[in-house]
């Protein structure tokens, strides 16, 4: 992977896939009808992306690692005083990143157990029963409102940087950017091993498989009852 870039390729792919599939999930969820089937598929894909990103936060490049960019309140205060120097997410932005990841995970997780009282339910809804599934639906709807608010804040912050502070953060999220080494912040170290990527992809695939009901007992009743004689 390219040396000196701020964001490695997997992080960038994660981001823009998340944006694209997230829009797809939101739109199909709102439209309903037969598109609700696609909604479920998009949602599972998003779940996979989030799991990938979380694992990548431990085995990925420096700027993607939680241990590196998630900082305490002192660092946030220093950042607000304009004293932060570094590459990657700033200490305040890091909190937004964590909140975004957590809310998206909650959105997808609640969807797995939800039902629409029409003709669709999440692949794990039968595990918890109808009442809990209805509660999951309520959460799914509530969390979505929060997610929209946070996404607006997120994009608003990016636009604020662009227009008011004159810094284009979007470009690096597309082409990786170029990290300048300063005394305080060395150039980020990049995960070079394809193994790290494979591990993250493998864990994500396993999570999607389980979330899609792949681990449920196979002796579930058939979806289609035989037509009755009367």
């Amino acid at each position: 992977m390219e040396h000196g870039a701020i964001w490695d390729l997997p992080t960038r792919l994660f981001h823009w896939l998340l944006v694209a599939v997230g829009i797809g999930a939101a739109v199909t969820g709102k439209i309903g009808g037969n598109l609700i089937e696609w909604h479920g598929r998009f949602g599972l894909l998003i779940l996979g992306l989030i799991v990938f990103r979380v694992v990548w936060g431990f085995v990925g490049s420096d700027t993607a690692r939680f241990a590196r960019f998630v900082r305490g309140p002192r660092a946030v205060a220093a950042y607000l005083r304009g004293e932060w120097q570094g590459v990657g997410h700033n200490p305040l932005g890091a909190l937004a990143v964590l909140a975004l990841l957590a809310l998206i995970a909650a959105q997808a997780a609640s969807g797995l157990f939800a039902n629409d009282d029409i003709a669709f339910q999440g692949p794990l809804a039968d595990l918890v029963g109808k009442e809990a599934s209805d509660r999951a639906r309520a959460w799914h709807s509530l969390v979505f409102d929060g997610l929209i608010a946070l996404a607006v804040l997120h994009v608003g912050a990016i636009v604020f940087y662009l227009r008011v502070k004159g810094r284009n953060l979007i470009r690096p999220m597309i082409d990786g950017g170029e990290a300048r080494a300063t005394g305080a912040a060395p150039r980020p170290h990049h995960a070079r091993s394809i193994a790290a990527f494979l591990i993250a992809a493998l864990v994500a695939s396993g999570a999607v498989y389980a979330a899609a009901g792949g681990l449920l007992p196979a002796d579930a009743p058939p979806a289609q009852c035989a037509p009755a004689a009367w």
Binding site: G32, G33, I36, D117, A119
Partner: peptide, 11 residues
């Protein structure tokens, strides 16, 4: 297709 149209009116 029509089943999908109906589902939208339920929703």
């Amino acid at each position: 297709a029509q089943f999908g149209n109906l589902g939208k009116t339920c929703k």
